[in-house]
Simulated assay, not measured.
Amino acid sequence: MDVWVGNDMVKINHGESHPYVRKSRSEAARVARILERGCGYPVVVKPLLVFVKPARLDKASSLTGVRALCERDLAAFGPLSGVLRPEQVEHIYAVARDRRNWPDALQG
């Protein structure tokens, strides 16, 4: 499958446009708000689109605010050094695990 990622959309095999980029930005902003409310301090959430085994992944040069990559590139995130202290990581993780912080998850 060929994937093209533009400013607000994704096209797969040159087909119709899907709003994955725009939705990814929106979901990241929503998650940041929920985590910040639960943690009591700013939590940076960066949107990421991961495509599994595309034959080709092309990104528009103007794509900003969202990372798009292949699943094999996820390993590159492991060695990144963070800006959070270990106790902050644990706190954010605890807030993220608590279903009560995710109103949509409680439905259904």
Rank of each mutant, 00 (worst) to 15 (best):
M1D: 05
V3S: 06
V5K: 03
V5Y: 01
V5Q: 04
M9H: 15
H14I: 03
G15T: 04
S17F: 12
H18C: 12
Y20S: 03
R22W: 12
R25G: 08
S26Q: 15
E27I: 13
V31K: 07
I34T: 08
R37D: 14
C39K: 01
G40W: 08
G40F: 07
Y41S: 09
P42C: 10
V44A: 09
V45G: 04
V45E: 00
P47G: 12
L49Y: 02
L49M: 04
V50Q: 00
V50F: 00
K53W: 07
L57V: 00
D58F: 10
A60S: 14
S61G: 14
S62R: 11
L63Q: 08
T64Q: 15
V66E: 00
R67W: 03
L69Q: 02
L74Y: 00
A76T: 06
A76Y: 03
F77T: 01
G78K: 11
L80A: 09
L80F: 12
L80V: 05
V83Q: 14
V83T: 13
L84H: 02
R85T: 02
P86H: 07
P86C: 06
E87G: 01
Q88F: 02
Q88P: 00
Q88K: 01
I92Q: 06
Y93D: 11
Y93I: 03
Y93S: 09
Y93A: 13
A94C: 09
R97A: 13
R97E: 12
R99W: 11
R99H: 12
R100K: 10
P103K: 14
P103H: 13
P103V: 09
D104Q: 04
A105K: 08
A105I: 09
L106S: 14
